[in-house]
């Protein structure tokens, strides 16, 4: 054990390891907060759809040789998130079908563009890194970390400031509208925040594993806690803890960061599921 601590403190001397931990904690915190709302609104899979859209946008940004990919990825992902979350029931292609269509469509177009207009010698490596995160969390630049901190602060501020409105929209949108809440505006806000989180989380776990950060902490917390507030706090705690554990294990054992974090989330879900079962059988 002291050997592991010594090794970890040695790794922590490197700025890129510290950046990975900062970004990992912030992204997992933000994704878990919105995760509760998305799970309750039956939009668990939207993270997957939007991350594939972000992948498609990344491919277009690579083809256009943009110096800052975020200039294209963020607006495109936000636009699709708004389309998916705000059009509600007034569309011909509804809910899960729209998410599935956007998800696979963006993935296919992204991969196609990357192959046709290849700008790199290692296409499979680029695709693999984007889809599974690979080590991109350990190759972050200082400006990317600052951008992540700034966007995370905006997300946290919006969530705390509009907590009551998000709560009412999550459970009963019609009732919220009847009580004077501008549901269109707040749905738009949720869509923008979700898109920002997805784009940030792609660096941490990759496009294919983003949904895990959104869904697992919320579902784990729901096994044990019952109120919206307690579930939100528990989901945030579980998510941050699992991310920290996942990053530390990945650094010490040399495993892929994204999948190690998701594995930690699965273990946490198993534990909370068991606790919930035991509590219910006791009652």
């Amino acid at each position: 054990m002291p050997e592991l601590i010594e090794k970890l403190s040695f790794y922590l001397e490197f700025p890129f390891v510290r950046y990975a931990i900062i970004v990992g904690v912030l992204v997992s915190l933000c994704s878990s907060l919105l995760g509760v709302t998305l799970v309750l609104k039956r939009y668990s899979y939207i993270g997957d759809g939007l991350s594939h859209v972000a992948f498609g946008a990344l491919a277009i940004a690579s083809v256009l040789k943009l110096t800052n990919n975020m200039l294209l990825i963020l607006p495109v992902t936000i636009a699709v998130a708004v389309l998916l979350l705000c059009t509600g029931k007034n569309t011909r292609i509804k809910g899960d079908a729209a998410v599935a269509m956007v998800s696979v469509g963006a993935l296919a177009i992204g991969y196609l563009l990357m192959n046709i207009f290849s700008t790199s010698a290692n296409i499979s490596g680029d695709v693999c890194t984007t889809l599974f995160g690979s080590t991109s969390i350990l190759t972050l630049k200082l400006e990317e970390v600052i951008l992540c901190i700034a966007l995370s602060c905006v997300v946290l501020f919006c969530f705390v400031l509009f907590y009551n409105k998000i709560f009412s929209i999550t459970f009963d949108e019609n009732f919220a509208r009847a009580t004077g809440v501008n549901t269109t505006l707040f749905n738009l806000l949720i869509a923008v925040i979700v898109a920002v989180i997805i784009v940030l989380a792609m660096n941490l776990v990759g496009a294919l594993l983003v949904s895990a950060l959104v869904v697992f902490p919320a579902l784990s917390a729901m096994r044990v806690f019952k109120s919206f507030f307690s579930v939100t706090i528990a989901a945030a705690t579980i998510s941050v803890f699992c991310s920290l554990i996942g990053i530390v294990i990945a650094i010490l054992a040399g495993t892929p960061v994204g999948s190690t974090i998701v594995a930690a989330d699965i273990v946490a879900f198993g534990m909370f599921y068991s606790i919930g079962m035991l509590r219910n059988s006791g009652n």
Binding site: Y11, F14, A20, T135, L138, T139, A250, I251, G254
Partner: peptide, 16 residues
């Protein structure tokens, strides 16, 4: 002496 994950990050720093 470093794990594979950290080595990759370190070599990236060296190249960048």
């Amino acid at each position: 002496r470093m794990s594979g994950t950290v080595v990759y990050g370190m070599v990236y720093q060296m190249v960048t």
